[in-house]
Design a binder for these strands. Structure first.
Lengths: 118, 118
DNA sequence: CGCAAAGTACGACGGCTGTCAAAGTTCGAC
DNA sequence: GTCGAACTTTGACAGCCGTCGTACTTTGCG
């Protein structure tokens, strides 16, 4: 079964943490970065999964990968492949269940009083 | 006039940021630290102002001072002196107004699924 | 097969931040 | 005015995190 790590090519999808494993600490560490919060906001707003490339970020590709990685590890997004594109889905319901109101409080507000909205 | 800094002894109270100046970024940077979140939780739970010394923290006094400083700068707490004690008040209503639901989402939940509550 | 596209993995590097100890300041009590 | 309590300030230091470029992998296409 190779439960630890399916070495088959159909599984480039790394493991996602269970919702119950997610700690507030980790979620906050993930969301404190503006770039990552931007990603989450984009997913939150779009209401559909987005490929990494479709969210444009002010950082290099490798850095972007890093951010997606952190978000995934924190349990905030789910990732899967479609061709060469990696899709990202916000784990909205699960986060809401674990930390009610958090996502909304953070995403509803772009950047405080100074930002009008992108 | 010395508007910049009242050199009088009755004002050891440093300036507090206006609510409208507070940025989500800064608030998150403040709350991402467990020690600071602990302070905020204590204030949130106690419903009354607490002196620095009454909240016991797993760090040295100078570090504690640093944390209180960060919280004040982020607009999360208000500080004033009573004798040699520095009192801390959570700026609850103001934060709620600026970032509805945020405080509650962060403080209501100690540390995620694993913690039962101190 | 050969090539381009989309990400990933790997170091490396710089800056920021939490940490402490030691010295200083202010206040209250005696 | 002296002492102690409660913090603050300063300076130093370690560790982490975001950043990048480069090389690599996988997929899809013709």
């Amino acid at each position: 079964m190779a439960a630890t790590r399916q070495k088959n090519k159909d599984a480039r999808i790394p493991a996602h943490p269970d919702v119950r494993t997610i700690s507030l600490q980790q979620v906050l560490e993930a969301l404190v970065d503006p770039v990552r919060r931007h990603i989450v906001s984009a997913l939150y707003a779009s209401h559909e999964d987005l490929a990494c490339g479709t969210i444009d970020l002010p950082v290099s590709k490798s850095t972007a990968t890093h951010h997606f990685h952190v978000l995934r590890e924190a349990g905030l997004i789910r990732q899967y492949y479609v061709g060469t594109s990696r899709m990202n889905a916000l784990r909205r319901d699960e986060i809401d269940e674990a930390f009610p109101g958090l996502l909304r409080a953070l995403v509803a507000r772009p950047e405080g009083p100074s930002a009008g909205g992108a």
